[in-house]
Amino acid sequence: MKKEVLKIVKIGGKLIEDKEKFKAFLGDFVALDGPKILVHGGGNLATEIAGKLGYKTQMYQGRRITDADSIKVITMVYGGYINKNIVAGLQALHNNAIGLSGADGLSIISKKRPVKEVDYGFVGDVEKVNSEFINSILKQNITPVFSAISCTQDGLLLNTNGDSVAAEIAKAMSSLYQTELYYCFEKKGVLADSDDDDSVIEKISWKKYQELLQEKIISDGMLPKLHNCFQALENGVEHIFLGDFRLLQKDSVYTKISN
């Protein structure tokens, strides 16, 4: 018997901040057939709020260092303001939704990242996803909306990479569904030329990925994103797509990742 398709969609903070584009995206998301999960970040707003509170945001090689003050702000902004606004937006479009962090139902269990070259502080790497709990929500025709916050077995909240959260959920749910993973960000897809928004690479296989790495076409934030993609493909995820806010539209331009 063929499994039902489950779509896991990750959106970045820049899309959330653009009201018009985000409104269009939500309409497309609600129009998706079948069960779906939304995962979101919100780093820019967390940085802005932290500054207003007098907290300094520290970064290392593009990654946020989450100290004791930062995790408070991230929990408030990701798990509170952004998460509940997305849920409210979905409810307004008659899509029943519930906002969650990894602590809810112990749905995303992580461990604190060990200190190596740098101490990232309260940052977590996902160890386990509670697929049964998430499935119990989906079976009630409710859409889970996950903020990028996970939790240790001992109850410690940790800031967690949103792309990784989406990939780990997709991998875990692949035992129950045919899972598809969508990364919506500010670009139309993976670009052959970072200065040309129309230079979208439509398909990237593992072989093509290695070529792009050698040619240094892929760099910066796209490196961990594609790393997550190929790990997900190796662990049960069927299809992965990357594109901008129009990614969920039928005639959109995007990058498809395949083995």
Rank of each mutant, 00 (worst) to 15 (best):
P224C: 12
A148I: 01
A192H: 12
W206Q: 15
N44K: 13
E168M: 10
K21H: 10
D119C: 03
N259R: 15
V9P: 00
P114Q: 05
K207T: 13
G124D: 08
V73G: 12
A192M: 13
L181C: 04
K2W: 07
K84R: 15
V190W: 07
Y120R: 03
V118H: 09
K139Q: 12
E117P: 04
P114H: 12
G42H: 05
D33S: 14
K7C: 08
M59Q: 08
A148Y: 01
I37D: 00
E127T: 10
G236Q: 09
F122W: 05
I134H: 00
D198Y: 13
F133K: 00
L106I: 06
K250L: 11
L26V: 09
N83C: 15
L15Q: 09
G102H: 06
L138E: 04
L212V: 11
I109S: 06
E20C: 08
L138S: 04
N141T: 07
M222P: 05
N83Q: 14
L45Y: 06
A50N: 07
T143W: 03
H40W: 10
K72D: 11
S258R: 09
I37W: 00
L100I: 01
L158T: 03
G79W: 02
G221H: 05
A68M: 01
T152W: 12
Q91M: 15
G51T: 12
K188F: 02
D119G: 12
L32N: 04
F25M: 06
G162V: 03
Q140N: 10
G236V: 03
K84D: 14
S199Y: 13
Q249A: 15
L157K: 07
D220A: 14
N85G: 06
I86Y: 13
G62M: 09
E132I: 12
G89H: 10
D104N: 14
R246K: 14
V87N: 07
I86V: 14
G102L: 03
K188H: 11
A170W: 00
C151Q: 08
L156Y: 06
G34A: 15
D198M: 14
A24W: 01
K188S: 13
Q210P: 00
Q249M: 13
V5C: 03
Y60T: 03
R63Y: 10
